[in-house]
Design a protein around this nucleic acid. Structure first.
Lengths: 181, 181
DNA sequence: GTGCACATGTAATGTGTTACATGATTAT
DNA sequence: ATAATCATGTAACACATTACATGTGCAC
């Protein structure tokens, strides 16, 4: 069940617009975001996996003689994407897969309805707030003497990063809540 | 040459204090930070690799009859760690390996001198500032209509994250510069 | 005497990275 | 003509994850 986030990223992009592997590579290369490699060695095999799983289907384009295949998301693929988006947000997601949560957020639009989006953000905020609280607790308890200075600073910076993330989620959630009411 | 950051994380921790694989696992499990798994399947093989490369040496402990081996960093290992820390910071590091840069920062203490630390921070700030500028540029240029709303928000959030990171680096660099002068 | 923490490992699997490879079309 | 871009792929390699496996010492 646990698929790589690259596969979902491809699926999400293909939902927005059917395109070729090359197009997707360019999207990753030009979009300054999201840490997906534009190397053919990652994207083409991933597309192949999606195709085998029948989450996308390939249509050979013959507009030009140049070889090129566009991928489109099948209905099964769309269901899989929505299921991924609708998954409950867990504490582990917040700790280990924060990037994936942001990716899920990015694809909410057009794939799930507003109540679902709001629920996603509420869970996100809840778990993130809980984790930030834990980190603050840990920060208070531990003895700064035992750590190196830069080590301690790096730790505090980590906590601040999560705090910033939390502020963003709160802000976004409020926006969503307003529009809904 | 490109070693996994897990290996350097282990090396850095072992430099701070010789300890066993189990101790390191506990450190990863209890420290709420840095996304290293505490699974034996990652740590023990990594230690083995370090040992084969002679960056650490294992000393069997026989204080108790319980089996346990402590690892200590060899001089070659220490040199490798320092070489890793002293590497120039590149744009690619900033984009693809930000976490590794923070990890390097955490281990500066006790391994490189202040001028080297300062140089690290200067390069970090430079490259990060350049990248943030690029992102802002990209943000201005592209057409918000073509993207989904949440997609656009996620992008802006990404930029903000980098901006926050930059602020932190600037702040830390100033602290370091003051102490040095 | 049973369960828990200590302590170390291996095997299967999936997947990302890098490098290599091929060929078509367009621009200069 | 030749370089750049379009377009797709494979192979080798390293690595992380997960699950499984084994055994010791201590506390209750």
């Amino acid at each position: 069940m646990k698929r790589s986030s690259l596969e979902y990223a491809l699926l999400g992009l293909l939902r927005q617009k059917p395109q070729s592997g090359y197009d997707l590579r360019k999207a990753f290369a030009s979009t300054p975001l999201r840490h997906f490699s534009d190397s053919p060695g990652s994207i083409y095999p991933a597309l192949r996996r999606l195709q085998v799983r029948q989450w996308v289907s390939a249509a050979a384009e013959n507009g030009s003689r140049r070889r090129r295949q566009e991928f489109i998301v099948t209905s099964a693929g769309a269901r899989a994407l929505v299921a991924w988006l609708r998954q409950p947000v867990t504490r582990d997601d917040v700790i280990w897969r924060l990037d994936e949560l942001v990716l899920r957020f990015a694809f909410l639009d057009g794939n799930v309805d507003r109540p679902d989006s709001l629920r996603f953000l509420e869970e996100f905020e809840q778990d993130l707030a809980g984790y930030v609280h834990e980190l603050r607790q840990f920060e208070k308890d531990f003895d700064p003497q035992h750590r190196s200075t830069t080590g301690y600073m790096a730790f505090k910076h980590g906590v601040d990063s999560y705090q910033n993330e939390l502020q963003w989620v709160r802000h976004v959630r409020k926006e969503f809540a307003e529009v809904l009411s």
